[in-house]
Design a protein around this nucleic acid. Structure first.
Lengths: 207, 207
DNA sequence: ATACTTACATACCAAATAGTATGTTGTAAA
DNA sequence: TTTACAACATACTATTTGGTATGTAAGTAT
């Protein structure tokens, strides 16, 4: 019987992801510029020695957050779930309702982790801008792939411009998510969602 | 001949608006949390004595900015210009092309002054959230008024749900503006704008 | 002209900030 | 078991932060 890996007290990778997790929550709540390294560390049991051993600067933490945490979120919340939907349009609409539609007003006010950073940091730091832009690209590409599968499987019109449609979908998602921060009202969501749904239904082949 | 008001060296109202103007530019570039009182004052010739004589705290400056500067922007850039358009839908499409479509990629990356603050500050400060929300309401109401005029003048369908349409227009504007921060590409704009235009054209009576 | 108010300037402060220099100890290879 | 390094902790610093206490002179009423 193999020894159960004696719980290490020092684990570079685990510590790194602990810091990233704490940073994600703090930044999601207060923005990147509104958060201090000390605040992040207070959420973990760690100290500055650990932090700056992992990340040369606070900005580098932000970069890693975008590259790793946000990318994983896009994958696990959108790209991968969409694979289990026969008709990608139905999948997109369903995911939208799950992630936004079922939110309480208080949750709506938190917005989208990715969009929050895009709006806050694009102007402020060029590297941030690049990395955030890359995640949007990744997301759009994932949606486009799903749409292409939908065309092949006969659910979507062969005339659909997949790139344009994917851009629209991601833009609308981010825009709606952001708009609800200022108007956290389920009625507003339903009203805007129905426009979105009607638009997406034009992508589908008529039954 | 009345004496031309001897250029006062001290003018409470003028100083206030000088600070607000400088603050607007600094905050537009770096966000509210990314800007210090000192940076704002460096843009004017003023010092902290002037600043804290006008505003009790930095937050109060932010509140005033939203209440006054952003509100004026909404009025002068959207509400008032729309009055000179016979068909409000044509007016909205034209203003969209003027303010976003004609922007360079560098300008696109700056985003919408209102939306930037909504995304950054809604989570951070409840009063900010309220005041920003009020400006969105003001904007939506102004658009709705314009749409109602369009119905009366026979340009828009009488069946149009003006409130829902106004919400959609403002949301799409903010969403598009925000999306272009990460994708500052005129082709992306054109692609998304065309979806917007087609949607708005469904509001119009067929010629 | 005088006095009084207030619009600002100057000089400060305590707290928070990102980052560093220097320890200390777990841990894995030898 | 020893050694050596890597994974942290601790203590510190220089700078920046929002804000204040106090001084000064411009503008206005008398």
């Amino acid at each position: 019987m193999p020894k159960p890996a004696a719980a290490k007290t020092r684990d570079l990778a685990r510590t790194r992801s602990e810091i990233l997790d704490a940073a994600f929550m703090e930044i999601y709540a207060n923005g990147f510029q509104g958060v201090s390294v000390d605040k992040i560390l207070a959420r973990t049991g760690l100290t500055k020695g650990a932090f700056f051993h992992q990340f040369p600067t606070k900005l580098d933490l932000g970069y890693a957050l975008v590259d790793e945490v946000l990318r994983d979120l896009i994958s696990s919340r959108w790209i991968e779930p969409l694979r289990s939907y026969d008709n990608p349009v139905k999948g997109i609409l369903a995911l939208m309702n799950i992630f936004i539609g079922k939110s309480t007003p208080a949750q709506m006010q938190c917005g989208c982790p990715l969009n929050n950073l895009v709006q806050e940091m694009t102007n402020v730091d060029a590297v941030f801008a690049e990395k955030l832009s890359a995640q949007i690209d990744f997301w759009v590409a994932g949606i486009e792939e799903a749409l292409k599968r939908g065309i092949k499987s006969g659910h979507l019109k062969t005339t659909l411009k997949t790139k344009e449609a994917a851009l629209y979908i991601v833009m609308f998602h981010e825009g709606l998510y952001g708009f609800l921060k200022a108007q956290p009202d389920p009625k507003v969501y339903k009203s805007l969602y129905s426009v979105f749904r009607q638009q997406l239904e034009t992508y589908c082949v008529s039954d």
